[in-house]
Computed example of a mutant assay.
Amino acid sequence: MIEYYEQLMQEEQEAVTEVIQLLYRQTFLLERKFDKRAGRLSFVKEYRTCSKHLEFLKEYFKVAGVTLYENAHMGLIYIQGENLWGEKLPRLATIYLLVLKLIYDEQMAEVSSSSHIVTTMGAVNGKAGDFRVLKGLPSPTEMRKTISLLKKYQIIEPLDVLEELNEHTRLIIYPCINAVLMGDDIRELLNTFNEEENIGDESAIQGHLEDMPE
């Protein structure tokens, strides 16, 4: 494994090191992310580096008890492991995460040619309202804070200015959401928020998310 790395040119070694640090820091690598200046999805160079050296990187992370996965169809590379810990999500962020996954799955079933889905804040709050998991519409400040948090985890990418956030604000839902909530029954989890004894209680859902790495 070390021999493979040492045979690389210095520039390539630095690129591989950067990818390792990036995966530990943000968990996911997307093949394409939205470039606001270009106004379109653009390829991510770190993803290409990771894909090129995938077998070496799998062995590297394996030593640390971490598994490296690639989903070429979704354009996603990510790590998972029991020793990777993330922060607890606030109630609204957890609700939005589940709703976004539901919207993502519904739209993917209709348009399977793309791994990226676009929705709006109005659709997200409307879907949450359908499940009666919000007492009322969150304040603009609370919504902006929550959207910023989910953007940090590369779950979504706002296409419009957050300072002007409203029901028409567009959001790209990245395929990272599949790695966070893979295999969960989203509707059932959302229904737990509709039970009176769980109002204001995050514990009903966070057991499913506590292994979400930072």
Rank of each mutant, 00 (worst) to 15 (best):
L84G: 03
L89T: 00
L92N: 04
E110F: 12
Q10F: 15
L89A: 05
E6S: 14
V161W: 07
I79Q: 04
L159K: 08
L8P: 03
L100D: 00
M108S: 14
P90Q: 06
F34P: 01
T119H: 04
Q206P: 06
A38P: 03
Y104S: 01
F56A: 04
E110S: 12
S51F: 11
S203R: 13
T146G: 05
Y96V: 08
E167C: 05
V124G: 04
L22N: 13
C50K: 02
K88L: 10
L68S: 04
N178S: 07
M182F: 12
E55K: 12
D184A: 11
L134W: 06
L171R: 03
I177S: 02
Y174G: 00
M74F: 11
M74A: 15
Y104D: 00
E214I: 11
Y69V: 05
R37K: 14
M1G: 15
L209K: 00
E157C: 07
I199S: 08
I95M: 07
N83D: 13
L54K: 12
L97H: 03
P138W: 04
D130P: 07
I205H: 11
H53G: 01
Y24P: 02
K62I: 08
V99S: 04
S51E: 15
L150T: 02
E202A: 09
T49K: 09
G122D: 09
E55S: 13
Q206V: 13
K135W: 10
K33S: 06
E202W: 08
Q7A: 12
L22E: 10
M1R: 15
E197F: 09
L76I: 04
T27L: 03
V44D: 06
M108G: 14
E110H: 11
V133D: 02
R25W: 06
Y4I: 07
E110Y: 10
V44L: 03
K62T: 10
D130Y: 11
E31W: 01
R132D: 12
E87H: 09
D105G: 05
L41T: 04
F56D: 00
L8E: 01
R170S: 07
A64P: 11
R32G: 01
L102T: 04
K101E: 05
R144D: 08
V111W: 15
F34M: 01
T67V: 12
E6D: 14
K52T: 07
S114T: 14
E197H: 10
E164Y: 10
T146S: 11
T141Q: 15
Y96W: 12
F56Y: 14
E163T: 11
I173T: 02
K36Y: 08
V180S: 00
L189P: 03
Y96G: 05
E14H: 13
L54G: 01
D160A: 05
E46K: 08
E214H: 14
N194S: 14
V16R: 07
W85F: 13
R40V: 09
L189V: 09
Y153G: 03
A123N: 15
K135I: 10
H73F: 14
P213M: 04
T67W: 11
I79W: 02
Q80C: 10
C50L: 09
Q206Y: 15
C50E: 02
I79G: 00
V111T: 13
G65V: 08
A38S: 11
H73A: 15
L100C: 03
I79E: 05
A109T: 09
V19Q: 02
V180N: 01
Y5L: 12
M1W: 13
A123D: 13
Y47R: 04
Y78R: 02
